[in-house]
């Protein structure tokens, strides 16, 4: 701020050209990369769903992929909604440790499981 501005009664807004440069550098760095290769995100999403589906039954629509492009680092967030765990079935080879719940003897728990199914 020049001392003359005091007489003009102006207060300077923060300069914005710096922000313009920074934002441009970030967005162009990413656009230049995607220019060379094709956009891999749709394929990445499809393959990720296939991998996850091999281990858990999922609804493909319950997978959400988001990207935040940054200067030094970009984050790719993948959110998979897993189905609610099923109740253990009788005779299922549930690990003994988990089955031995302190509130009830093992036998009664198996019975409850049978009623439920």
């Amino acid at each position: 701020m020049s001392w003359l501005d005091v007489f003009r009664g102006k207060s300077k807004p923060p300069p914005s050209a710096g922000a313009a440069k920074e934002r441009l550098q970030i967005v162009l760095a990413h656009e230049r990369i995607s220019r060379t290769g094709d956009d891999f995100l749709p394929r990445l999403q499809k393959e990720l769903i296939q991998v996850v589906a091999r281990y858990v039954a999922i609804d493909p629509k319950a997978v959400n992929i988001s990207l935040d492009r940054g200067g030094d680092m970009s984050t790719l967030a993948i959110e998979v909604e897993l189905p609610a765990p099923e109740k253990p079935k009788p005779g299922a080879d549930a690990p003994a440790g988990k089955a031995a719940a302190p509130e009830a003897p093992a036998g009664s728990k198996a019975e409850a499981g049978q009623k439920a199914s």
Partner: peptide, 16 residues
């Protein structure tokens, strides 16, 4: 306007 920081500098445009 460049001097007041309102507009991208020539050097910035060249660099980018």
């Amino acid at each position: 306007r460049v001097e007041r920081g309102e507009m991208l500098k020539l050097e910035d445009v060249r660099e980018i």
